[in-house]
Each structure stands twice: as C-alpha cells, then as structure tokens.
Design a protein around this nucleic acid. Sequence first.
DNA 1: TTTAAATTTCAGTTATTACTGAAATCACGG
DNA 2: CCGTGATTTCAGTAATAACTGAAATTTAAA
Lengths: 173, 173
Amino acid sequence: MKLTATVQRCILHWGEMAGRWGVSRSVAQIHALLFLAPQPLTADEIAEALSVARSNVSVSLKELQSWDLVSVTHVLGDRRDYFQARKDIWEVLAMIMDGRKKREIDPTVQTLRECVAESKRDHETPEDVKERIGTMLEFLEEVSGWYDQIRGLPRPTLLKLMRMGTRVAKVIG
Amino acid sequence: MKLTATVQRCILHWGEMAGRWGVSRSVAQIHALLFLAPQPLTADEIAEALSVARSNVSVSLKELQSWDLVSVTHVLGDRRDYFQARKDIWEVLAMIMDGRKKREIDPTVQTLRECVAESKRDHETPEDVKERIGTMLEFLEEVSGWYDQIRGLPRPTLLKLMRMGTRVAKVIG
DNA sequence: TTTAAATTTCAGTTATTACTGAAATCACGG
DNA sequence: CCGTGATTTCAGTAATAACTGAAATTTAAA
C-alpha cells in the first residue's frame, strides 16, 4: 500500500491535530487512512502503511469502533478482518459529537446533580455559589436536551436549517 | 481560603474531566474555582486553595485568559492582580466553542485547502479520494460559516430558537 | 533611581499517556 | 480436538505533557 503525496499529507495533518482532538496520533492517522481509502483495509495493511505496531493498530481500531466511526467487514474466503470508515461526512460529525457529549458532558451533568443534591444539606456554602452550581446544571441539561432533539431531525431538515443561516431568526420573529 | 465540601467536589470533578476537555488539570481546577468564587482572587490565593505551585497558577491563568474565560481586575491600593472568571454561562459556552473552533477546526480547513490545491497537480491520487478530500473541505467550510452566523445572533433569539426545539422544523416547512 | 513585592520564565523532575513486541488467546479449517 | 493464522492483552519502554522551585524580570511605590 503506497500512499500518494496528497493522502500522506492529510494523514500527517490528522496526526498532528490528534492531541487537540483528544485522541492519540495513531487513532487520528488510522481514521484518516480509512476515511480516504477506497476499499476496506486489514489491520496489517494499516500497520504497514503507517509504520506502527500491529498491536497499536488493534487498540486504535477498537477506539474508533467505540466512536462508531469504523466498522468491520469480511471478504469471502478470508479469515482476516477488514476495516472501513464511515464515508458520510454528516454521520462522521454526528458520531464525533455524540461521543464528545457522552464523554465530556454527561459525566459532569451526573456529578453536578449530586453536588446540587448534596448542597441542599450544606450550610457552609454561600447561597450564591450554590445558585451558580444549580444554574450550570440547568444550563447543561437544557443544552443536552436541545442537542438530543436536533440530533433526531432528518438530515434534509437539518440541511435546510443550516442553509437558512441567520434567516431562521426572521422566521421565528 | 477554605473551600466548602460542595465546592471542593466540583473542583475535583473539573480536574478529573480536564484530560477529556483538552486542558491540564490545573487549568480546569482554577477555572472551576474562579467560576464559583464570589469575589476575584489573587494568584497566591488560588495556589494556596488548590495546593499547586505559584508558577503553575501563572501559566494556567494565561491559558484561561487566552480562552477569554478569565480576566484581571485590581483593587485600590493593592499591586496584586485579581482574577475573575466569566459568570455568564452562555458566554462561557461561547468562549469555549470559539476557542475549540479556532484550535481544532481552522487549522484543518487551512491544510485541506492546501491539499485540495495540491491535488489538482497530482495524477497519482485516485479521483474518488480527491473528491472525498474536497467534500470534507466544503463541509467544514459550510459548518464553519454557519457557526459564525449563528454566533452573531443576539442571545434572546438564540434562546428562543433553543426553546423551540424541533418545532423549528415545522416552521421552516 | 532604588528597593521590594509581584509576576513570569525556564531548566529539571514527575506524572501521564502512547507505543512496542512478545506472549496469550481466539477462531476456524482440517 | 489439533494446528495455524489472526487478533488481543499486557508488561515494559518511549514519548509527551504537566508541574515545581529557583532565578530572572517586571512593576510601581518610595
């Protein structure tokens, strides 16, 4: 598997962004490779193309699967797993946002609920501090709920909304 | 500065989430502390409250300022800097989203532009791969542009939109 | 200026995370 | 159920990021 210059550049950039995106370089590079690859690849092919250890590919693919960005297929008469990435860019975005919400927001909502409950029995914490915690919890719950709603809209509707841009403001008066 | 149990719990949770949020534990904890604190705090007070090195507080505060989440104030007759966090949760969200877009999206749009330009002169890369790169660029540019538009809407409009939830779908037909 | 407090920088250390390669496990055809 | 190839696990190592404390710099009052 030789990578063309353009593809290489993309993969390298993905790797450089990995830290900011909150994944390891391998995960980002493998995702770039599978996203661009015309056909599904085996783990060995991935390891070779990116020059990383086979075991690293294995755990990275597991992570990509946990994000629902990569899935497994098979070819007849071949015992090996073939991996492919979602190609639909809208779905890729949705998976990343779902994953981030689950990992970055949900645990905090959970903790804040406990903090708010606990603060009821707490007479040390000033009222305005308690209030700030409560407000943040409400806010996160509201944004979360809104996301879940929007998330369920059919894509054509979403597209229409996006294309409208700020004109929605006019429509809703 | 003694922290109440509830406040402590919040700060510790923020610290635990830091890795996922893409900031260091200190940055997350300092932000939690300043967000909850009723009054601005000096760097020394922060260092003491969280038991971290004074120098660490200094660089973490710089990062929080780069996110526009923390600002400096002064009190008459006191040479020290006092730090305060934005208390408006909507603005906090806006600053975080702006910062993430700038750090996580914009550089990739830039690189993809170069990749697409380069791919014009590239006869090795298969057409469908080039197309996938181009599609991703267009997609990111569209989403970016949409974000910038929405970002500029006045908050009451945004709130109204959120509260409508999926009913916007009906309004736009 | 001079001086002292406040802040920042930075070299060195510690902690965390990512990666490798060998060994163990799994899965299937014979 | 044995053997072979595919995959995963995991202990050790490498790479990266975070943090500390001392030294340097800045700031402003005297």
